[in-house]
């Protein structure tokens, strides 16, 4: 564990808490579109469920296990809230990204490009590829509405920072322990790249107090 990875994981936690906070806030203005993509959240739940199949078999540390349990539990809880509790505030007409294509694409690629052709390893690889593109429905929704609430932009910023710090962590680990993981690196680079446009607008507008609006 290094500082980059620790802060990255903490930013990931922060992003989930921001999302839960936003959903609590949304409840008080029921009927209004929450502007959170259900598809993205469902994809994240799928990512965690397929990645942590080693939850009971592969013990790394208490930290590792606790985080895995938290990510699985919180992602399922968020999906549950959006699907049942706050169903009225979720507008599927804005959530139109074709998620089945990225699921299919990630599954096909995981079957072809993996480290070992075993059920667990292919599921893990699938989760890596799927996580790389899981934010697309959310970003697509943002493009469609052309604007976002401040709290939604903070959520995306926390997620993007978490990904960016993982890139730094890999460079650090390569030099300090000769750690190499091409599948994770390339998928991670693609994932971080997806946030570039968002980061630009976040820094030039939201942090200066302006509304998040697409040009």
């Amino acid at each position: 564990m290094n500082l980059f990875r620790l802060v990255a994981d903490l930013m990931h936690l922060v992003s989930i808490f921001i999302l839960l906070l936003k959903m609590q806030k949304t409840r008080s203005v029921a009927g209004r579109c929450s502007r959170i993509s259900f598809k993205t959240q469902a994809l994240y739940a799928t990512v965690f469920l397929t990645r942590y199949t080693d939850l009971f078999a592969n013990f790394q540390s208490l930290y590792n296990t606790t985080m895995k349990v938290f990510f699985i539990a919180s992602s399922l809880y968020i999906v549950f809230l959006m699907k049942f509790k706050f169903k009225a505030t979720n507008d599927p007409r804005l959530d139109t990204f074709k998620a089945q294509y990225v699921v299919g694409g990630a599954a096909a690629l995981a079957l072809i490009v993996n480290y070992a052709f075993t059920v667990q390893e292919v599921l893990w690889t699938f989760s890596i590829y799927l996580e790389a593109v899981a934010i697309l429905p959310q970003l697509f929704m943002l493009t469609k509405t052309g604007e976002a609430e401040v709290i939604t932009t903070h959520y995306l910023f926390a997620l993007g920072t978490y990904r960016g710090l993982y890139l730094v962590n890999w460079i650090y680990r390569y030099w300090t322990e000769y750690y190499v993981d091409w599948i994770v690196w390339i998928a991670g680079a693609v994932q971080t790249g997806l946030y570039c446009d968002f980061f630009y607008i976040y820094f030039t507008k939201v942090l200066k107090g302006a509304k998040f609006e697409l040009p």
Binding site: N58, K68, F71, A116, E121
Partner: peptide
Amino acid sequence: QDPHAKKDEL
């Protein structure tokens, strides 16, 4: 060697 055994990142 099981490639999964050494995976320590989340």
